[in-house]
Deep mutational scan, measured.
Amino acid sequence: VTVHVNRYTYHFDNPEEAEKFAREMAKRLNMTVEIHGNTLKVE
């Protein structure tokens, strides 16, 4: 599972951890999480 935050890319083996990380980053940056299959984008 890949998480994109701005120009950074993070890889996770565990989808739940990836989503938790993405949501935490989105909250911190006041952004939203978009899910595209195995890719989560924080925008």
Rank of each mutant, 00 (worst) to 15 (best):
V1R: 03
V1A: 09
V1G: 03
V1S: 06
V1I: 13
V1D: 01
V1C: 08
V1H: 09
V1F: 15
V1P: 04
T2C: 11
T2D: 07
T2F: 12
T2N: 06
T2R: 05
T2W: 14
T2H: 10
T2S: 08
V3H: 01
V3R: 00
V3Q: 01
V3E: 01
V3T: 01
V3P: 01
V3Y: 00
V3L: 03
H4F: 07
H4P: 01
H4V: 15
H4M: 13
H4C: 08
H4K: 12
H4A: 06
H4W: 08
H4L: 13
H4E: 11
H4I: 15
H4T: 13
H4N: 06
V5M: 06
V5E: 02
V5P: 02
V5A: 04
V5I: 13
V5F: 10
V5H: 04
V5Q: 03
N6E: 10
N6Y: 13
N6R: 05
N6D: 12
N6H: 12
N6L: 14
N6S: 10
N6G: 15
N6F: 14
N6Q: 11
N6W: 12
N6A: 08
R7F: 12
R7D: 13
R7Q: 13
R7T: 13
R7C: 14
R7E: 13
R7Y: 10
R7W: 10
R7N: 14
R7V: 08
R7P: 06
Y8C: 14
Y8I: 13
Y8Q: 13
Y8V: 14
Y8K: 14
Y8M: 13
T9R: 07
T9G: 03
T9L: 10
T9P: 05
T9I: 14
T9E: 10
T9N: 05
T9K: 10
T9Q: 11
Y10I: 05
Y10Q: 02
Y10H: 03
Y10W: 11
Y10T: 02
Y10K: 03
Y10L: 04
H11C: 09
H11M: 08
H11I: 09
H11P: 02
H11T: 07
H11G: 02
H11L: 09
H11N: 06
H11Y: 14
H11E: 05
H11K: 07
F12M: 01
F12Y: 03
F12R: 00
F12G: 00
F12W: 01
F12Q: 00
F12D: 00
F12H: 00
D13V: 09
D13A: 10
D13M: 09
D13W: 09
D13K: 09
D13F: 08
D13L: 10
D13N: 10
D13T: 11
D13S: 10
D13I: 09
N14T: 12
N14P: 00
N14M: 06
N14E: 07
N14C: 06
N14R: 07
N14D: 14
N14S: 12
N14K: 07
P15A: 13
P15C: 11
P15Y: 15
P15K: 14
P15I: 15
P15F: 15
P15G: 08
P15H: 14
E16P: 04
E16A: 12
E16D: 12
E16H: 10
E16F: 11
E16R: 10
E16Y: 12
E16N: 08
E16G: 08
E16I: 12
E16C: 06
E16S: 10
E16Q: 11
E16M: 12
E17Y: 06
E17P: 02
E17H: 07
E17T: 09
E17V: 08
E17Q: 09
E17K: 08
E17C: 07
E17N: 05
E17M: 07
E17A: 11
A18V: 01
A18H: 00
A18W: 01
A18Q: 00
A18F: 01
A18G: 11
A18I: 01
A18L: 03
A18M: 02
A18R: 00
E19R: 08
E19N: 07
E19K: 08
E19A: 09
E19L: 15
K20G: 05
K20I: 12
K20L: 12
K20W: 09
K20C: 08
F21Y: 04
F21H: 01
F21L: 01
F21E: 00
F21C: 05
F21D: 00
F21Q: 00
F21V: 01
F21R: 00
F21A: 02
F21W: 07
F21M: 01
A22K: 02
A22N: 00
A22I: 04
A22G: 02
A22Q: 01
A22R: 02
R23A: 09
R23I: 11
R23S: 09
R23T: 10
R23W: 14
R23K: 10
R23F: 12
R23N: 11
R23P: 00
R23H: 13
R23V: 09
E24F: 09
E24A: 10
E24Y: 12
E24W: 13
E24K: 08
E24D: 11
E24S: 06
E24G: 05
E24T: 06
M25W: 13
M25G: 00
M25N: 03
M25R: 02
M25P: 00
M25T: 11
M25F: 05
M25Y: 05
M25V: 14
A26T: 02
A26Y: 02
A26S: 04
A26R: 03
A26L: 03
A26Q: 03
A26M: 03
A26N: 02
K27T: 12
K27R: 11
K27M: 12
K27L: 14
K27D: 14
K27E: 14
K27P: 01
K27S: 12
R28F: 10
R28H: 09
R28C: 10
R28N: 08
R28L: 14
R28M: 13
R28S: 07
R28A: 12
L29R: 01
L29M: 06
L29D: 04
L29S: 03
L29Y: 14
L29H: 08
N30K: 04
N30G: 14
N30D: 07
N30H: 11
N30F: 04
N30C: 07
N30A: 05
N30S: 06
N30Y: 04
M31C: 09
M31L: 11
M31E: 03
M31P: 01
M31F: 05
M31V: 10
M31G: 15
M31K: 04
M31H: 05
M31S: 10
M31I: 05
T32M: 11
T32Y: 08
T32N: 09
T32K: 14
T32F: 08
T32Q: 10
T32L: 09
T32P: 05
T32R: 13
T32A: 09
T32S: 09
T32V: 14
T32C: 06
T32I: 15
V33N: 01
V33Y: 06
V33M: 05
V33W: 06
V33D: 01
V33I: 09
V33S: 02
V33R: 00
V33T: 02
V33C: 04
V33P: 02
V33F: 05
V33E: 01
E34D: 06
E34H: 15
E34W: 11
E34P: 01
E34I: 15
E34S: 15
E34Q: 15
E34M: 14
E34L: 15
I35L: 07
I35T: 07
I35E: 04
I35G: 05
I35M: 09
I35W: 14
I35A: 08
I35S: 07
I35Y: 14
I35P: 03
I35D: 04
H36N: 13
H36V: 13
H36Y: 13
H36G: 05
H36F: 12
H36S: 11
H36P: 01
H36I: 13
H36K: 11
H36W: 10
H36L: 12
H36C: 07
G37I: 06
G37D: 06
G37N: 06
G37S: 04
G37Q: 06
G37H: 06
G37A: 05
G37E: 06
G37V: 06
G37C: 05
N38L: 07
N38M: 07
N38P: 07
N38A: 09
N38E: 06
N38T: 10
N38K: 05
N38H: 09
N38R: 04
N38I: 05
N38S: 10
T39P: 03
T39Q: 10
T39N: 09
T39V: 15
T39D: 10
T39F: 08
T39K: 08
L40F: 11
L40Q: 03
L40K: 02
L40T: 03
L40S: 04
L40V: 13
L40N: 03
L40I: 15
K41I: 15
K41A: 06
K41Q: 07
K41H: 13
K41R: 14
K41L: 14
K41W: 15
K41Y: 15
K41C: 12
K41N: 10
V42F: 04
V42L: 15
V42I: 11
V42D: 03
V42M: 05
V42Q: 03
V42C: 07
V42H: 03
V42E: 03
E43M: 15
E43Y: 15
E43R: 13
E43H: 14
E43T: 15
E43G: 15
E43N: 12
E43A: 14
E43K: 14
E43P: 04
E43Q: 15
E43V: 15
